[in-house]
């Protein structure tokens, strides 16, 4: 079970520095136009930052796998919601009223 695990101070500090660095990258990358990839790249960097917060600040790395599953299931259903709605929108047939 969750043995009282103390994460070293150095780990927290390096995670903070990486997070701040990635924030700078996020802003810098936004100045360049990658076309359709813009949102994807921004979300990718955000997810790397999010993973660092989850793993180290929220201790997921050291905790029981159960919490992974709970959090992951929430994320899974959000992604599912996104894709099902997206599929609904792109498969709609535009009907023009002839009246």
């Amino acid at each position: 079970m969750s043995e009282h695990h103390t994460v070293p101070f150095k780990t927290y500090l390096s995670v903070l520095i990486i997070l701040l660095f990635l924030t700078v990258i996020t802003v810098a990358v936004a100045q360049i136009d990658f076309g359709a990839w813009n949102t994807f790249i921004a979300m990718f960097i955000a997810s790397v930052k999010g993973a660092l917060v989850l793993l180290y600040f929220m201790h997921l790395k050291y905790e029981d796998r159960l919490y992974w599953v709970i959090f992951g299931s929430g994320v899974f259903f959000v992604v599912l919601l996104f894709f099902l709605t997206k599929i609904d929108i792109i498969t709609r047939v535009l009907e023009v009223n002839t009246l």
Binding site: Y67, I70, G74, V75, F77, V78, F82
Partner: peptide, 21 residues
């Protein structure tokens, strides 16, 4: 306690998730 907290965080993800989508 930790389990309850993570379940709550999961509902938070679902709430914000709807807005994000």
């Amino acid at each position: 306690g930790t389990l309850g907290m993570w379940l709550f965080l999961c509902t938070e993800i679902l709430m914000f998730g709807g807005l994000f989508v």
